[in-house]
Write a protein that binds this DNA or RNA. Structure first.
Lengths: 225, 225
DNA sequence: GGTGCGCTTCACAGTTTCTTTACGCGGAGG
DNA sequence: CCTCCGCGTAAAGAAACTGTGAAGCGCACC
């Protein structure tokens, strides 16, 4: 379960920019376009962190901050338009955890989000995928079968991850390639997948003729049983 | 245990003003009137926070900030005479936690001090991280292996800290860079991480081929075993 | 000005991993 | 029963990755 970040910001361009960068880093992103919606969203989605614009329609950021603090310790990262607004913020002892002044670089924001979450001691919890005897710990980059650790190459790891995230689902070779190579378009023959699946099966101790884990779907691709 | 604030400022009127307000709020206050004395006082009194004037005799604030950062993560609040110096500060990636421009209200400064301490206070002070034979005292910047102290450079220290805070977790080079350079993005080739990890391994007596501590996760990065 | 330390980049070599190719097998459909 | 197509996989060359020594640079300390 990855961290969810709530972005409360009325400028859709900024929201989209932040969404782009945050999602690339594995965060879930929820957006709200005014203070009222922001408070609702916070209540509903229980985000790990809130990025809050100071200037908002309906209910401004200061008010949102105060209300959030009434019921929650959720870390808050403030966005402010000008440096001298910071004074106002701090003077008010709002309890925001950090602030960034516009214009900001999205990478900086992402870095601060990470820092705050780490500081808050709520580092992203481990995601462990299980399926029968298979155990995959994404963070540790660690795979075990019946408790025995097996070493997978990066591609094998991603393949198995794809399968574990959707057991029973049949993936085409092309779908698997897209997963493995993220968004980069690599010109790779799709038979390459067969080779990697073969290696993976070998390491899992799987026999293609009588698969326990990865089954061939003839004419389509592969799936996890 | 009350917080101690070190005020490094050559104008005695300002120092006294800050002392008055800070002590009223229950802080202990130590004053130094130039950069050199400031560094000594920081070493001696281990303050919870440093308020640092940018313009100082002997050793200026920027230099003091840099030196403090070499051995400590103590929060730093900068005092600057003019707003446009702030840009310079930020551009220098000094690692100050906040800044206030003169003229300021002492109440504002106190508010910021509280905010910064609250922010930093989430990270447990005097925390000692242990892992096997490894011992790291964050505050003292001490690292020991089997009781033998080893000297680590700032970057090596932060790297090891990242590992110790999440043993077993595989970090990408980029993640490690983000940790080392906190908020500010430095454009550094990620292979640089390899070199630092190499040095760290050397100091830990670790053999990359048979690591006891830092293992390579091929295609990904590194992790602490 | 010299020296030492720390950071970064580069280059090279040793390994590991990836991709392609080629061949054999076997099921599906005629 | 035969053919065709898809699949499994061994082999080998290509590509990518990592460890490390060396060099350059900036900076603090003499």
């Amino acid at each position: 379960m990855p961290h969810t970040v709530l972005v409360v910001e009325d400028d859709a361009r900024i929201t989209n920019l932040l969404r782009l960068y945050l999602e690339r880093e594995g965060f879930g992103v929820v957006a709200a376009y005014d203070g009222r919606a922001g408070l609702e969203a916070a209540e509903r989605t229980r985000p790990s962190l809130v990025i809050l614009d100071l200037m908002l329609p309906h209910v401004d950021g200061i008010e949102v901050c105060r209300r959030l603090r009434e019921h929650s310790d959720v870390p808050i990262l403030m966005l402010t338009a000008r440096v001298d607004e910071v004074d106002r913020l701090l003077g008010l002892s709002l309890g925001a955890d950090d602030y960034v002044t516009k214009p900001f670089s999205p990478r900086e924001v992402v870095a601060r989000v990470k820092t705050i979450l780490r500081r808050a001691g709520r580092a992203a919890p481990h995601q462990v995928l299980r399926h029968g005897e298979l155990e995959m710990d994404i963070d540790r980059h660690h795979v075990r079968i019946s408790g025995r650790e097996v070493h997978l190459t990066p591609i094998e790891f991603k393949l198995l991850q794809a399968f574990l995230e959707a057991p029973e689902r049949a993936f085409s070779r092309e779908q698997l390639l897209n997963r493995v190579y993220a968004h980069h378009e690599a010109d790779v023959i799709d038979r390459t997948v067969d080779v990697h699946v073969g290696k993976l099966r070998e390491k899992l101790g799987d026999d293609p003729a009588r698969p326990r884990y990865i089954a061939t779907v003839r004419g389509i691709g592969y799936k996890l049983l």
